[in-house]
Design a protein around this nucleic acid. Sequence first.
DNA 1: GCGACAG
DNA 2: ATCTTGTCGC
Length: 233
Amino acid sequence: MELNYVHPFRLAPRSFKCLQEQLADQLDITRPLPLEGVRSCAGVDLAYWKEGETERGVCSIVVIDNRTHEIMEQTMSIGTIQTPYIPGYLAFRELPLIAEAAEQLTVTPDVFLFDGNGTLHPRRMGIASHAAFFLNRPTVGVAKSYFKIGGIDFKMPGNEKGDFTDIRINGEVTGRALRTAEKVKPVFVSPGNRIDLESATQLVLSLVNKDSRLPVPIRLADLESRRLKREAK
DNA sequence: GCGACAG
DNA sequence: ATCTTGTCGC
């Protein structure tokens, strides 16, 4: 994949917020993305470990065929992590390795799914939203835990698969608590960019099964990144 | 200052 | 995210 990536980690941390605000103005989360047109889905995840004083990380991207759930392609990248984890700024920590792995893809996925938020973020610029600006593809954020914004709590959805509650930040519904399996802890879905919340919700529901409450591509990327980490240590 | 805090 | 044994349950 051809990317137009600019290393955000070379910016001073104080300018992280400024860049997020600038990019947020260019988001488009109004477009439906019909499931029928989605053939390939990429899942992205990272694993970390320490080598002395330096922190290392490995990123895995797994692309699956949306109909058969078979793996179409997978890529990886390993490197030193330059930025610490700061809530609200996860993208600056993880995007460098994600970009390296994405560049190696020979197929261009119809959509990318991330372990983390999209617009469910203080400045509507979670990692899924940020990544879309160099992937140039629709992106979706799927977080395993709730990132509280502006003191707003989420309402627990019903217990059936597909039940959800909207999460409204500053008068705008930016995400949902979604039950992806019966009586299982909900996940938090939000559009990254180039897709609307409803399409993102339906896509996530179409990609889960009884073995994982997370979309299959993310689950596979999680397993693979951990395997690569054990291999590298 | 205190607590909360995606991964 | 990661550190970690056993353990309850399908």
